[in-house]
Amino acid sequence: MKTQQAMIDQAKSLLKKLLEDGEATAVFGLARGMGGVTAPRIFTMPDELDSLVLEPKWPLAKPAMEILRTAPGGYRLAVVCRGCDERALVELIKRNQVDADALVMVGVACSGEQASICLCDRPYPSKLDIGEAAHGVDPFDDPGVKYLLEGDTHTRMGRWERVLKRCVKCYGCRNSCPICVCDPCKLEGEPWVRRGIIPTEILSFHLIRAFHLADTCVACGACQEACPAGIPLVTLQHAMRRALREGFEYEAGLDVNEKTPVLFDFIQAPEKDRPIPDWINTLRD
């Protein structure tokens, strides 16, 4: 594995080149500031890049989108992207929230250990510029995920209730999710979710939020990391991502032109291999 420092130097040189020959107006990445504390930063001059770092994990997709949204015309932002950042930005490009040619993605691979923390099955971007791709982790091997997604429905419901009941309604999950761009958002009021009570209505708040990301969630874990109550929100998404993979052979964020099955290629005639459940035999399967 390349050492951390080697990766940082490689990133610095690559990004400096982008700035110098005008490929990008600014670079958005992580910087080590005063007192050795890292925070996201926008680098406009090549020498500012000396403070660039790649660790720890800091989801940059959403702030990058918001910067691009308020940027003047012709502004091109180079973003240091981990696998999940790139996939999130791909989904945002698909949803016309980010202008594809105002964005230059510089891919950075995650370490194997980071992959096991995030339970990420693809800890590297498709366009990998820095570092080598570590092999991913299947989220369904994790005991925590198994605990919440297996077993008979009744005990599983009890477990989810006990976990989701801890919600303090800080909206951190929605605020940090790169895909959530709506203002106002359905979670904020009637008739979707009852306002002003803690803990939130689990069945409406959490399920509506989870379902809105059904076919767009890239499992970057930003929601789970932003949740003060430590609720395993990504596990909810794993259930649906598995359904998408098995039912519709689709995974979010891999390719800008790949269409999500929920919105495209509807058919009139019954599909060859999957008979359409008519009224009765639906109950048998």
Partner: peptide
Amino acid sequence: AAFKRLELLRALLEGVGIGRDRLLVTF
């Protein structure tokens, strides 16, 4: 379109423990 959407919702209901068969989508 509705069938696909609700199929995905059934996956979520199954995941969260309410159970896939509480939502029946028939044609």
